[in-house]
Nucleic acid binder design. Structure first.
Lengths: 143, 143
DNA sequence: CAGTCACGCAACTTATTCAGTTACTAGAAA
DNA sequence: TTTCTAGTAACTGAATAAGTTGCGTGACTG
């Protein structure tokens, strides 16, 4: 795959699920649709389950389902569940610099990036899975 | 270094320059402050020069300078100059899917990610280098 | 003019990340 | 008991990007 594939895969899968919330999907089904591998799917969806967005069941007729209505799942939920930090890179080691100006500036740059990161999450929280795949979707026979 | 290092390096360097706009800085100076390599610095700053944010001069007393006032350089300018696409991953190959629902959904997911990307750039355009390193910076003797 | 300094650039090396893959275990239903 | 599915660990391979080396080019200096 390519960059941002986790977020893209999650978004894709959950949007699919939003179309038929009652259907149980196996990781193989999902992987086939997303053109990837069942293990990769389980890895990504596992994070979403930990965050309470999905449920999974083992055994016959097992698989994955949304844990709550699509309109209650925002892109921020997904983003945070995946531990993505696209902008601020999670305030690294930050070994203190020799120079005071340097140190102060490093801190300031980190602050600014954090602010941007927060803005991004705020923006993501304004869109739900239901917005990505509206009930009026012309491709789905609404069942 | 680590992830997002280009954006971080650029931000750091330009903020530094904002403190003393008239000073000519060599890539070695900058690399030392940023704890990295002169060639890496030139690679990143070269992109910013292409975008008209910086100027560079060869030879004795050569180096790098801001091409315009710090308050006229936004984070979006930097972000775009670096060709970063943190969110939308730049609408890849997109081989058409067999399935109509699939294809429509892929398109839709791409649209959503593009919208988020645009929001991010809009947010970045609200902050300038001067905001990152204000003239009132307590660390710098304002000269 | 010769020497030095700095950018420009290409090529290579190294480290990291992550998707992909294989193989196995555990649990639930038929 | 068989089968189907998730869960997980371990490994592989590709891609990305930083780091490094070396050399060319242009500009200032003495």
């Amino acid at each position: 795959m390519k960059r941002n594939s986790r977020l893209s895969l999650a978004l894709h899968t959950l949007s699919h699920m939003a179309g038929e919330p009652d259907r149980m999907r196996t990781s193989s089904d999902i992987a086939e649709h997303a053109r990837t591998n069942p293990v990769v799917v389980r890895r990504v969806l596992g994070k979403l389950r930990e965050a309470g967005l999905l449920t999974s069941e083992k055994g016959h007729s097992g698989g994955w389902q949304l844990a709550k209505p699509a309109s209650n799942i925002t892109l921020a939920d997904i983003y945070l569940a995946l531990d993505e930090r696209l902008v601020s890179a999670g305030n690294k080691d930050a070994e203190p610099s020799h120079c005071t100006v340097e140190s102060g500036l490093q801190t300031r740059v980190g602050e600014v990036l954090d602010e941007i990161e927060n803005s991004l999450v705020a923006r993501l929280s304004e869109t739900t899975i239901a917005d990505v795949h509206p009930a009026s979707c012309s491709y789905c026979g609404s069942k």
